[in-house]
Nucleic acid binder design. Sequence first.
DNA 1: TACCCGGAAGACTG
DNA 2: ACAGTCTTCCGGGT
Length: 85
Amino acid sequence: MATAGCRLLWEFLAELLNSSADDVIRWEDKPLLKFRVMDPQRLAERWGQEKGKAGMTYEKLSRALRYYYKTNIVAKVRGQRLTYR
DNA sequence: TACCCGGAAGACTG
DNA sequence: ACAGTCTTCCGGGT
């Protein structure tokens, strides 16, 4: 069950948001839990390293994010590649 | 352009 | 063998 082992995508994103990786992803409005991806390509590279997937791209990372809409882990704020969790 | 949308299929893990 | 969480691929949208 569940990848539980360690970093799920949302845990990885939360860690980046709570650290100072402002060049890749940052809070747009922390109280509202809105964040913004500043550098899609670098975000995908870091995610790829986490999972040991060399060919990770933002297209694929965002596909995983779309599956999150269904479970309400994240929601898209169109017009600015913003999301909240 | 670059990013966004979801269905379908399949890999990987505990 | 099984179910959860993606990963990969695709055609189409804004």
